[in-house]
Design a protein around this nucleic acid. Structure first.
Lengths: 205, 205
DNA sequence: TAGATTGTTAATCGATTAACAATC
DNA sequence: TAGATTGTTAATCGATTAACAATC
């Protein structure tokens, strides 16, 4: 029982708090309050305080939260007080864009392995990285002991890739294919599907 | 009162149901049940039935749901029984990838306008599309009467772009910049931030 | 008819909000 | 000290699940 069971939905909000705190720090602020932070992320002050208090007493009555301190605490909680290696499978437009994306670096991630199965892509370079053959994926990922992967292959291949990944060190998958993945317990999956998000909004148009 | 107020969270699940239904149809199925659909999307059968029943009685006791029929109904509810034009602002890696992304076409969307502010990009071609100057964005979008935009500019410019967009016909924004946008009532925003999703999962690693 | 599955109601569960004593 | 804001408890709100009559 070294870790109290925290609701998943609270964990999901921590990255948003962190994002806002980083921005406040960049603006030169040193201290914030649950009220201000709530306005930044669009969440009530009460909920901000309740969420944060799950992990300790990081604020001070009367003054609020020290931004650097809280930021450091949240990074520790989320295990991003380090740099995680990431593998990307599928070098189409999405995979290529993710490989070049500069937004990962200062948020705890670096892409170190990229894969495709197209003969004309295998062996080519994307920035510093060489595109590897998906056929060699399991071995290469295991050797590198990479824990995080992003799937950017067509929907009809995504489950097969996920199945392969479960034979590796990968324990967190960010899936860009518009399909739900079945994975064993202990492997975490998050989904990104822009069309789904757009369809959500068209209801209100 | 022509439209009963449906919880937003239910609306957000409809695109997932639709995605699964399309896939089932592609597999040659004609009929499904709340149980089967639930397994496809990872949601309980009871919830599937409850969600769908908000909009009408689309199933039959004993047999379940006709896939084509339900699919058509959901497309109607979500207003994607048509093709929506989409504008993309920012032609960096993300914007470029989204412009080329083939996954929008058969899900109700087509990218028709793209913008950047870099002189070397303005006037260049991406596929069929010419990159327009962000300075001309308000006029061009209004003339085309585009209702949906995706923001793919750096975080520190995203709010300014959103402010400009609120002067246009755009009423739905999909924001790829890692920052919350303030927009007036009646403008809808959804967020996509892969780093945030990854940070969510590292908690469990 | 017998079996299956819906639509819906009531019960349960969990998350959010309001309120306030503690205290910086 | 007076004002501000936390951490936490209790109240409220909303979402999910269980159960089952209706019926295909």
């Amino acid at each position: 029982m070294d870790k109290k069971k925290i609701p998943d939905i609270i964990i999901g909000r921590l990255p948003l708090y962190l994002r806002a705190l980083n921005r406040m720090a960049a603006n030169g602020s040193a201290v914030t309050s649950s009220k201000e932070l709530g306005e930044w992320v669009g969440i009530s002050a009460a909920q901000i305080r309740k969420d944060i208090s799950q992990f300790g007493e990081f604020g001070k009555q009367g003054t609020g939260y020290n931004i650097d301190f809280l930021s450091k605490k949240i990074r520790g909680i989320l295990n991003i007080d380090r740099i995680w290696d990431v593998a990307i499978i599928g070098m189409g437009d999405i995979g290529h864009g993710l490989t070049e994306y500069q937004g990962f670096r200062d948020r705890g991630f670096q892409v170190t392995l990229v894969f495709d199965n197209a003969p004309e892509k295998i062996g080519s370079k994307i920035g510093e990285l060489t595109v590897h053959n998906i056929a060699d994926m399991v071995d290469i990922i295991n050797t590198a002991d990479v824990k995080i992967a992003m799937i950017a292959v067509p929907a009809n291949h995504a489950q097969a890739i996920a199945d392969e990944l479960t034979k590796t060190s990968v324990k967190a998958i960010l899936n860009y294919a518009p399909i739900r993945l079945n994975v064993p317990d202990g492997v975490h999956v998050q989904y990104i599907d822009p069309a789904t998000r757009l369809q959500w909004m068209t209801y209100y148009l």
